[in-house]
Design a protein around this nucleic acid. Structure first.
Lengths: 110, 110
DNA sequence: TATTTTAATTGTAATATTGCAATTAAATAA
DNA sequence: TTATTTAATTGCAATATTACAATTAAAATA
């Protein structure tokens, strides 16, 4: 159905999936990497750098903004985007805990 | 178009996105959490525990298997699934590097 | 052999995602 | 005011994803 049954999962499971999903497209990965490199970036820069159409970049930026991972500062007709450090840190705690799960060394099953 | 333009991104960017994408559904998060908890699990157990239909779980398992994050051991008519530790570790290195990016403390832009 | 058990596969409906052309909105510059 | 610049929004086509009923496959058991 194209629609995940989120109601049968825990809030934490849905939260992990939501964060992971936004990283699940290389354009959004590239946008975030550039924002980390430059610590400030105009939408047009991202369009030039990445090579997708302006509406496409704008749409990806919106998804990152909706999750709170980036914030945009309007400067005249331009918008300067950058990482929201605080939210990035709390996202990292959630996703990091998931990735850092581990198994006892010697209990292999297969 | 529903189709990501992977060719304009680096291998690393595509790799990060591919791993993230598989974590982008709560059912796959739940499956992995259960495999970490139990260190061995039959497909039927996951169906009972998670509450999605058997073909649906089977499909999610396939995606995890295709990425190498889990492996399945056939035991008669059953299949015992568990985490592939080695591949999980190398996935963690790739995704972890991405998450651990950081900015200099005092260069806020917005 | 026939039945049962377990999981994979197939087919399909519903919904989501990606990408872009065209347009709009809002601020600045001429 | 009238361009111009920059980015958001709208609308749409192509493709992907999710979920499951029905079926198949393969091994174990009666």
């Amino acid at each position: 159905m194209g629609l995940a049954k989120t109601e049968i999962f825990t809030d934490r499971q849905n939260q992990i999936a939501t964060f992971a999903k936004v990283f699940g497209h290389p354009a959004r990965v590239a946008i975030l990497q550039q924002l980390f490199r430059t610590d400030s970036c105009y939408c047009g820069n991202l369009v030039d750098e990445i090579g997708l159409a302006q509406p496409t970049i704008s749409q990806h930026l919106k998804e990152l903004r909706n999750l709170g991972l980036i914030k945009g500062n309007v400067e005249g007709t331009s918008v300067c985007y950058c990482i929201d450090r605080e939210n990035w840190t709390s996202m990292k705690a959630v996703v990091g805990d998931f990735l850092d799960q581990d198994l006892p060394e010697n209990e292999e099953c297969c």
